[in-house]
Simulated assay, not measured.
Amino acid sequence: MKEEKGIQSLERGMALLKILSEKGPQTASTLARGLGIHQSSASRLLLSLQKAGFVRKPAYHSFALDYGVLSFAGIAMAHFPIIGASAKISALLHNETGCGAAVAILQDDRLLYLSRIASSSDGRPILVDDSSFPLHRSALGLLLAHGKGKKEFCRLMKNSAESLGEPVSELGLYRMVTDSLSKHGILFLRDWQGHKFNAVRLFEADGRQGALAIFSGQKDQPLGKLKACLEKGSLEIESMLRK
């Protein structure tokens, strides 16, 4: 019984930190409602997390993440070589094309950017960005979901569209991705979600699929060049992770 309570407290503590990371400072009562627990239980969790350096009080009634989370995350990132490899590859793709580049995986039905460089940036990547961008609008999300098979693809697209109250044809999107892969060997979309083009390719990393993307809202690129760059990038990132 004591062990079960400890596990439950750990689960609630992790859920609480996730809420703070997604929504910013919150009151104890708001966090309690979000977790479905009594406010006194939420207050005890917050006190424990505050003592551990993961939570602070920026104002009298509110709680927010503390710098201990950054320290923990920084140490943890050292154990994920895919992050450093993703930064190198996205920079390589950006330098070779002058376009935006990104590397991402799916985590908890969400798109998790491991590295991302905007088309107009100075070439420095943004690392580990938990994106709230809906999967059914994302070329990266479409291809990563497609790699999980038709049934899972349709579930992910349906949930993504319903979260925004948007109509979507899951099978239509699945056929669109399948047709592009059959025709081009990559997912290649023109005039998609404000971008002039999106070119995406899968790769294998640590026993799971990741995806590389090149995109631009302004300039165009020859399809052959995009395919060659993505192939080179996927082979290099897989090679880095085997070392």
Score class of each variant (00 low, 15 high):
209 Q>K: 15
58 P>L: 09
96 E>D: 12
143 L>G: 02
240 M>F: 12
114 L>S: 01
123 G>Y: 03
174 Y>A: 05
11 E>T: 05
190 R>M: 04
118 A>Q: 12
19 I>W: 11
112 L>Q: 05
229 C>I: 04
158 K>M: 04
136 H>T: 09
107 Q>S: 15
37 I>N: 08
117 I>S: 09
47 L>M: 05
9 S>L: 13
212 L>K: 08
69 V>Q: 08
20 L>G: 12
169 S>M: 02
65 L>N: 01
87 A>D: 04
19 I>R: 13
39 Q>I: 12
181 L>W: 10
3 E>A: 09
124 R>K: 15
159 N>H: 04
164 L>H: 08
187 L>T: 00
53 G>L: 09
67 Y>W: 11
100 G>M: 08
34 G>R: 03
97 T>R: 11
113 Y>T: 06
232 K>A: 15
120 S>T: 10
237 I>Q: 07
76 A>V: 10
26 Q>D: 00
116 R>W: 06
150 K>H: 03
144 L>W: 00
60 Y>F: 03
41 S>P: 02
62 S>A: 12
187 L>G: 00
181 L>E: 10
238 E>N: 01
130 D>G: 04
219 K>A: 15
81 P>L: 12
228 A>C: 01
180 S>V: 07
205 A>K: 01
227 K>H: 04
178 T>I: 00
156 L>G: 12
240 M>Y: 14
54 F>T: 03
157 M>V: 03
161 A>E: 01
74 G>K: 08
78 A>Q: 11
121 S>F: 10
189 L>Y: 04
194 G>H: 04
13 G>C: 06
162 E>W: 02
75 I>L: 10
136 H>Y: 15
29 S>H: 07
158 K>H: 09
115 S>F: 02
65 L>F: 02
29 S>I: 05
83 I>K: 03
196 K>H: 12
141 G>A: 08
217 G>E: 10
33 R>W: 04
65 L>A: 02
81 P>E: 12
37 I>D: 08
128 V>C: 10
117 I>V: 14
241 L>V: 03
8 Q>Y: 07
163 S>K: 14
202 L>E: 13
11 E>S: 06
89 I>N: 06
27 T>H: 06
176 M>R: 14
124 R>F: 13
176 M>H: 08
180 S>W: 08
198 N>D: 15
89 I>L: 11
102 A>D: 08
52 A>Q: 11
148 K>P: 00
173 L>P: 01
188 F>T: 05
110 R>H: 13
90 S>N: 07
52 A>Y: 07
114 L>D: 01
133 F>Q: 12
95 N>V: 07
7 I>M: 13
57 K>L: 07
2 K>R: 15
213 A>Y: 02
149 G>A: 06
68 G>D: 00
167 P>G: 00
231 E>F: 06
138 S>A: 04
185 G>Q: 06
86 S>N: 13
81 P>M: 11
46 L>F: 02
158 K>N: 07
